[in-house]
Amino acid sequence: MKRNWSLYPYILWMVVFTIVPILMVLYYSLVEAGGGFSLTLSHYARVFEPLYLSVIWRSILLALVSTVICLLLGYPVAMILASSPAKQQFSLIVLFVVPMWMNFLARTYAWMSLLETNGIINTFLGFFGIEPLSMLYTSGAVVLGMVYNYLPFMVFPIFTVLRKLDPSLLEAAEDLGANPLKTFMKVIFPLSLPGVLSGITMVFMPAVTTFVISQLLGGGQFTLIGNLIQQQYLRTYDWGFGSSLSIILMIIILLSMGLISRSNTNEEGGIL
């Protein structure tokens, strides 16, 4: 058997920083509080209490809504990027990427000061005599935060696929009588599916696990599964429950990824 020695540092890295932590989480989720080796499923049982189920459900729902909005916004953006001439393309991409160079927290705080009751938007509206709107600490604000932060993860995979699309295929469709809409439905969109699917995964994953966005923009009202886990580890020190929540979250993500890559069997490339 041929061995590729250059792979070993990578394997070591994976073991130390990925596999071991996951095994530890698995371990904590299965043993009684206080350590030891007495196995229990009680942590998992708690996950299925209605209170926590509703948190999980809300997390999935908000992540799904954000993913759909990212797709609806991101696809046209990717198309515009891909169809603009090479020179403009570069500056457009830079424009799009620059906000990402700012710290994630700083960006989210910036949205807080925009959305606050005494914030910039309401002050502006006040000039026109419009009553202040309560925008912060709503599920809308959480979705907004997710869309704002994760939109590039949707745009870039789609852009990459669209840029490589052979323009002569679009001409062939047109030649066979397809108007621009039909050409999109029958040729452009199906051929961009690998990009769409990897975009969906790359937005859905961070969105379903986030705790910062929901904490800052959602206030106390919008606890998501990410917040719940964070609380278990850092406040109530219930590592067992926190770990079982983490494992459940991992399963959710793995399932959704499996679902997505199944629908993507025809096309190579794509997912991550």
């Binding site: 295929l169 001409e171 047109e174 009588g177 040729v187």
Partner: peptide, 29 residues
């Protein structure tokens, strides 16, 4: 526009749709 012209083309570099099979390609129009 091209899609309204009563003309069909056999392209120099074929331009067949890679996501469709032979039947679907031919049936496209």
């Amino acid at each position: 526009p091209a899609y309204q012209r009563k003309v069909n083309t056999v392209f120099q570099r074929y331009a067949l749709f890679p996501h469709l099979n032979v039947y679907e390609n031919i049936a496209f129009g």
